[in-house]
Design a protein around this nucleic acid. Sequence first.
DNA 1: TTCAGTCTGTCCACTTGTGCACACAAGGTT
DNA 2: AACCTTGTGTGCACAAGTGGACAGACTGAA
Lengths: 258, 258
Amino acid sequence: MDARISKANEVDSRPANNLLRRLSQADYALLAPHVIVENTAANHLLYNPGDDVQIVHFPCGPSLATFLVPNEDGRDVETILVGREGAVGGIVSEGFLPAYTRICVKFGGPFARINVAKLEAAKQRSLSLRNVFARYADCMLAQIFQSTACNAIHSIEQRTAKWILAAMERTGDESSVPLTHEQLATLLGVGRSYASRVLQSFRAEGVLDTRRGSILVRNRDGLRLRACLCNDAVKLHFEEVLRGVYPTEEASPNAAQG
Amino acid sequence: MDARISKANEVDSRPANNLLRRLSQADYALLAPHVIVENTAANHLLYNPGDDVQIVHFPCGPSLATFLVPNEDGRDVETILVGREGAVGGIVSEGFLPAYTRICVKFGGPFARINVAKLEAAKQRSLSLRNVFARYADCMLAQIFQSTACNAIHSIEQRTAKWILAAMERTGDESSVPLTHEQLATLLGVGRSYASRVLQSFRAEGVLDTRRGSILVRNRDGLRLRACLCNDAVKLHFEEVLRGVYPTEEASPNAAQG
DNA sequence: TTCAGTCTGTCCACTTGTGCACACAAGGTT
DNA sequence: AACCTTGTGTGCACAAGTGGACAGACTGAA
């Protein structure tokens, strides 16, 4: 093993994905030969319902993926966001099952990819590797559970604020979310005109500004005040479940979104 | 191995849970020594948020468990139903993580129980056993995804009809669901008076009758007509993912509920 | 049999959210 | 500069759902 490969296993040189960075040197070494990092543009579909799941995608840096549930009217309903804190594709199913949801790149950027079969083989060889992925799977589950509850009882205003905060935390962008009102409405499963109205009221209160095709956040705390607490509940679970799995962990888990 | 133990491994003598019955003789033999069947009454809490998950519970026969997400106001929101088609506790997390949701026995009856550690040990020894559980985990995930979408876009009327159908399919009871309006409302996360009104409108249309503390279904197809299609979408996924895993499978998967 | 506690049906005022319509604004292209 | 497409702000009529209130009905226990 020469110096170059050894360097590739060090945490700092890994893709900017918390799940991959969380792994021990030994565990990451099992995966490293199979990891490919590529850029993927926004709106690219990673999976459609019924697709064979053969690749796990790890959003890196500001990349963001979402799970969409198709609906009888053809409208997709967005459910959860996955950013650099996690991964999509075969996390729970362990691959090779038909995908149930659509998975879409919401904000483009780099994704690390690993063949599911390779990942499963590595899990066979390392219990601690399996452990990390099982823990993340549980966090993802928590996220969806929270989302289900959130959709049942929280107002559109709360959910709008929640979504904007969650997107910002993941992309790391301090102020801007590239989204039209139409897109925001669709992804919350609500009417466009009402979504516009909510943004309008946020603007009137000085919480954000609206530009054509994007939202500029002016007062993050104000937004937090108007959001439900679903993000925080999920973030807490991420911290409890994943904290200290490996002490080499970086600072912020940067989790959340219910 | 004497005749008695060999008999205990045959499908007909196993607990009335599809997941356990789906296993090959060899796989079930790995679990059989650790399976305990007990009755549990309605409203018993199997897990509370934060609990250590150490036991997997398999609802048998008409038993029914539900996942509840606690809310800031103290109101729990019900998410998905699990009956004899599945199991609860450590299915995705593989155990030993703090539970995120509350898990409650909705309709009492027999539950088969296995220690998570024993189940995991058996999975280590048998890939096909692991495979069945991974496939079920994926189905459960599909169920929650569908539920999230359903809560986002379907009306209370549709969701009420859906819930009643799902409960009936699981218990096998042809006509009656033991539930007060209050309970139904709480579990859908809606106001009691509106839930009453919906049931009233169903009654006026001859779809069901209401008794104090229970709902009597008169016209199942009428109810289906008024429900969203979430149940069917999930049921289809159950069939695709679990069908033919072992050909010894019994007839109806009896799945569903989005 | 009576009583208390719970469940049910319904009323009402009110908030939230829908769906459509339409005028106007912002940009990108030619 | 004129044009076209897409996005935005807002008005309106209406539907869906809330939350409180209250009378009456059912049921179990004393």
